[in-house]
């Protein structure tokens, strides 16, 4: 457990290194010793040479059934690492259903059955247990849902604390970095101990993002993360996504096509439970291959 924890911390700092431009950081011997560091470095090199390893999520004939009715059907998709993929489509087309299949979130839905194959970071999803997969694949929900009984500080480290236990001051750095990354630090740094419920909706959502970042997933799923927020908060969150996509893979379900166009590198269009089109965002929005996609993005329906 202790080792796991140390690794985690190292890995965390490693990510920080990617963000920072200070070359001295990489001189730190702790990081070089860390196995994680070597692996990650190798992965980065591999990424540039082999396109294959750059796949974060790939599904084969993925279907989700609710009471024997399909929510999504035979979805085949490859999602690139360290990029932002937007998932668009009219309500009820299965966008969220797809997203929730990627980290076993359908566990909570009675009568939901997932079939097909999902490959996460090069391994079949069934090789992970439900806890490990969710540490790798984090999720931000539509409505901000901070834990009401906890302070801002405790909310950020809730994932770490409940998994590895708590020691005073141990997580201070992580809290700061996560909050900086989600763009909330400056607003809350003087009042970390107050209840998370006293924040505004947009701040709560950024807190939820910080909470997800603190666990250090590789992939972050976002289920319409800004649909309940005002434009300014939305802009803040989009900016964070833009900054963080160098080190995280984002899959964002959105109702808002402008948002998809603004933040994403790739766009997947779902319609009636099927994946209709998936390619570069610029392609989808300027010259879509499918007629259905064109009709949707030009506002003929949806």
């Amino acid at each position: 457990m202790a080792n796991e924890f140390l690794n985690n911390i190292n890995e965390f700092n490693l990510k920080e290194k990617y963000l920072s431009t200070n070359p001295e950081d990489s001189e730190n011997p702790v990081f070089i010793k860390s196995e994680e560091y070597v692996n990650k470095d190798a992965a980065v090199q591999e990424k540039s040479s082999h396109e294959k390893s750059a796949i974060a999520v790939s599904t084969t004939n993925l279907s989700v059934w609710f009471n024997d009715k399909p929510g999504i059907e035979n979805v085949n998709i490859n999602i690139k690492k360290d990029s932002v993929t937007a998932i668009i489509g009219p309500s009820g087309c299965g966008k969220s259903t797809f997203l929730r299949a990627l980290n076993f979130m359908h566990d909570l839905t009675p009568n939901a059955v997932v079939t097909g194959e999902i490959n996460i970071l090069g391994k079949d999803i069934t090789e992970y247990n439900s806890i490990d997969i969710r540490k790798k694949v984090g999720m931000v929900f539509q409505k901000p849902n901070p834990f009401p009984t906890m302070s801002i500080y405790d909310n950020v480290i809730s994932g770490l604390k409940l998994n590895w236990g708590h020691k005073k001051g141990l997580y201070d750095e992580i809290v700061e970095t996560s909050l900086v990354q989600s763009g909330l630090w400056n607003e809350v740094k003087d009042r970390l101990k107050i209840s998370a419920y006293s924040l505004s909706g947009g701040q709560q959502q950024r807190l939820c993002i910080a909470r997800t970042l603190a666990v250090k997933p590789e992939i972050i799923l976002m289920d319409e993360p800004t649909s309940a927020l005002d434009p300014i908060s939305t802009a803040g969150i989009e900016a964070s996504i833009h900054d963080l996509k160098k080190i995280y893979t984002f899959i964002i379900v959105t109702h808002n096509m402008q948002q998809a166009a603004r933040v994403s590198d790739f766009t997947a269009y779902f319609y009636l439970g099927k994946l209709i089109e998936h390619s570069k965002t610029s392609t989808v929005f300027t010259k879509p291959k499918e007629k259905l996609t064109e009709e949707y993005i030009t506002g003929k329906f949806g």
């Binding site: 980290n103 979130m105 566990d107 909570l108 439900s130 806890i131 490990d132 969710r134 540490k135 984090g138 999720m139 929900f141 409505k143 849902n145 901070p146 834990f147 009401p148 009984t149 809730s158 994932g159 409940l162 998994n163 939820c208 909470r211 997800t212 666990v215």
Partner: peptide, 24 residues
């Protein structure tokens, strides 16, 4: 949504139940 939030952080079901749900 609180249960989902906790599970999505990789917190186990029993910790979610005892430390998040029950505490709330």
């Amino acid at each position: 949504s609180l249960r989902e939030a906790s599970l999505a952080l990789g917190i186990s079901r029993w910790k979610t139940t005892l430390k998040i749900v029950l505490r709330t």
